[in-house]
Simulated scan of single mutants.
Amino acid sequence: MSTPAYRRILLKLSGEALMGDDPYGINEKVVERIVGEIAEVSGLGVQIGIVIGGGNIFRGIQGAASGMDRATADYIGMLATVMNAMALSDAFRRHEVESRVLSALRIEQVVEPYIRARAIRHLEEGRIVIFAAGTGNPFFTTDTAAALRGAEIGAQIVLKATKVDGVYTADPQKDPTAKRYHRISFDEAIGRNLAVMDATAFALCRDIKLPINVFSIFKPGALRRVVMGEDEGTLVHS
């Protein structure tokens, strides 16, 4: 296939993906590699929205588990995603790729507020849009933010970047006989209790028939192969 299979995508990046082998924080070499692959796909004419997590800095659910108020912990986690989004945007600048950070929390001194029409305009003008601060509400994960923003911007697919190159019948690190699903329906994934995304995000994607492709962001060239419609990762579809 010589042209991309998708015109507009929503890429979900976990905060942990930015750590590399570090115990926490942002590994600049890892960010440079990831941004380079995203920039390559953008150069194909694909419009890209990115939802970034904050688990490399702070995870709200862990803060709540240690006794912190859950809503407060989630807001701290949202601020962590803003920091990650700014780091990504700066890396895109070094690659001479235009990007904009749109935050669900209003921090206008450093990033733009999220406005749906503004996000779509940026995409149509060829800029990469990085959605920060999740949905702007506690008790909702960045997986749910990815499903929501994907629906709002009219993305054709949600690409969930993980450490594993797809969805397997079992944990491939524990079970050497585990097989990767190339394609699987939403109903099959639910019936087999496969942890593709959190339940709220998964249900939203299923209900609006927004497919999900789970792939490894650590596998060189995987993002491009997914966008080109090749057999990479696992496609979850209606």
Rank of each mutant, 00 (worst) to 15 (best):
V30F: 13
V30L: 08
V30D: 12
I34P: 12
I38W: 00
I38K: 02
I38V: 15
A39F: 09
A39E: 12
A39K: 00
V41N: 06
S42D: 01
G43R: 05
G45F: 14
V46T: 09
Q47P: 09
Q47S: 12
G49I: 01
I50Y: 03
I50A: 00
V51N: 04
G53V: 00
G54A: 02
G54C: 01
G54Q: 07
G55V: 03
N56G: 08
I57H: 07
I57Y: 11
F58P: 09
I61R: 04
Q62R: 07
G63T: 01
A64N: 09
A65G: 07
S66G: 05
G67D: 11
M68N: 04
A71Y: 05
T72Y: 07
A73W: 03
D74P: 09
D74W: 03
Y75Q: 01
M78V: 00
M83T: 08
M83I: 15
M83H: 07
M83E: 02
A85R: 00
A85C: 09
A87S: 13
D90W: 12
A91E: 10
R94K: 14
H95R: 10
R100F: 14
V101M: 07
S103V: 04
S103F: 08
S103C: 10
A104M: 13
R106V: 14
Q109D: 09
Q109T: 07
Q109Y: 10
V110M: 13
E112P: 13
P113M: 01
Y114C: 01
I115V: 15
R116M: 13
R116P: 14
A117S: 15
R118G: 09
I120F: 03
R121K: 13
H122M: 11
L123Y: 10
L123A: 01
E125T: 11
I128W: 10
I130Q: 04
I130N: 06
F131K: 06
A132Q: 02
A132T: 02
A133Y: 00
T135L: 03
T135R: 06
G136T: 03
F139W: 15
F139A: 02
F140H: 00
T142N: 05
T142H: 01
D143P: 10
D143R: 03
A145W: 02
A147I: 10
